[in-house]
């Protein structure tokens, strides 16, 4: 409750208008349309891959995170911040989708006034390469774009340059292991590989290197265990829990920055229901460059295809 109270004291009109827009986009299109036979989000055979929080999902979907509230680890110079983020994923066709991410930041450096504002707009175009139900595998290729001058550049370090990021995401469940390994079969892993290509080599005297980004999510699905491997007597809400550990790292590859790898390790848990999921993770920096101390986040994530199956939950070209 304290966090909620803090949040609304800090939110300014622009943020609220942004939230209103995001909410109404989801709500306004419930009015018309016909049902269509559509597959479920994040499924490969028996395997359900939840929408992970730190790392990208290996599937196109109609989903929305509203909001993700984050308290990152404190930065090396003592700066601490609170982030409020919104993510939307929308399918254009059953295999082609786009994503958008926007965030609002409240940042405080000791001895300085608190600064608030947007952190920059990120969008992505994604194509589902394949889904293999038998082996619980899926893969996706995409192009992410971090847009210049869409956040507070001077005060919050939002980029003054656009970055293009080709991405490859994959997921693999281990349900195809032999029946003799029943408690290994609920494991799954998802991963992201991407490469940042900034359109400007330097900003305000600091280099903008190309970065190699790599992230993984290690998941143990109690839902899979209970409903596909062995009925161990789990009931709601425990039969929908997915404990996981996410890891994401970024390594610059040029412009004198190649030793400056940063990243976080985030153990947490996701509860997945019929219409939404709730996730919470601790945030541990991997080195001093990535911050110090412990951070944390909580996310509410909606499955638009389940909430609005006749309208905005369908691929755009099927409306």
């Amino acid at each position: 409750m304290l966090h909620v109270k803090f949040m609304f004291h800090r939110i300014d009109g622009a943020v609220i208008r942004f939230l209103v827009g995001a909410g109404l986009v989801a709500g306004a299109a419930m009015l018309v349309g016909q049902p269509d036979p559509a597959g479920a989000h994040g499924f490969a055979g028996d395997r359900f891959f939840p929408a992970t929080i730190l790392t990208d999902d290996p599937f196109v979907a109609d989903e929305m995170s509203l909001p993700t509230f984050t308290r990152p680890p404190t930065a090396a110079d003592g700066t601490h911040e609170y982030d409020l983020d919104v993510d939307i994923a929308k399918r254009i066709t059953p295999d082609l989708g786009f994503t958008a991410h926007y965030g609002w930041v409240s940042s405080h450096t000791p001895g300085m006034p608190t600064v608030t504002g947007f952190s920059g707009l990120n969008t992505g175009l994604q194509y589902q390469l394949f889904i293999n139900p038998q082996h619980e595998m899926m893969a996706l290729a995409g192009l992410g774009v971090s847009w210049a001058h869409t956040g507070r550049v001077a005060a919050l370090g939002a980029p003054d340059f656009t970055t293009l990021t080709p991405t490859f995401d994959f997921g693999k469940g281990f349900g195809d292991l032999p029946d003799s390994m029943p408690f290994i079969r609920p494991f799954a892993i998802t991963g992201n590989l991407s490469y940042d290509v900034p359109t400007k080599t330097e900003s305000a005297g600091s280099p903008n290197p190309n970065n190699f980004n790599y992230g993984f999510a290690f998941e143990y699905s109690l839902e899979y265990l209970q409903h596909h491997v062995k009925d161990v007597g789990l009931t709601a809400p425990f039969d929908r829990l997915i404990p996981l550990v996410e890891v994401a790292l970024s390594t610059p590859v040029n412009r004198g920055q190649s030793r400056n790898t940063t990243g976080t390790v985030q153990p947490g848990i996701i509860w997945s229901g019929q219409y939404y999921q709730i996730g919470a993770e601790a945030i541990l920096p991997v080195n001093a460059l990535s911050g110090k101390g412990l951070g944390g986040l909580i996310q509410l994530h909606f499955y638009l295809d389940d909430m609005f199956p006749k309208t905005i939950g369908r691929p755009l070209l099927q409306w």
Partner: peptide
């Protein structure tokens, strides 16, 4: 006004998500 509208939008989404008989799902 913005705050009320934001809360209304969030409440709308939450109620659509939470209502067990208000919608269907997989």
């Amino acid at each position: 006004t913005c705050r009320r509208a934001a809360l209304a939008a969030l409440a709308f989404l939450a109620s659509a998500a939470l209502a067990p008989s208000g919608g269907f799902a997989h």
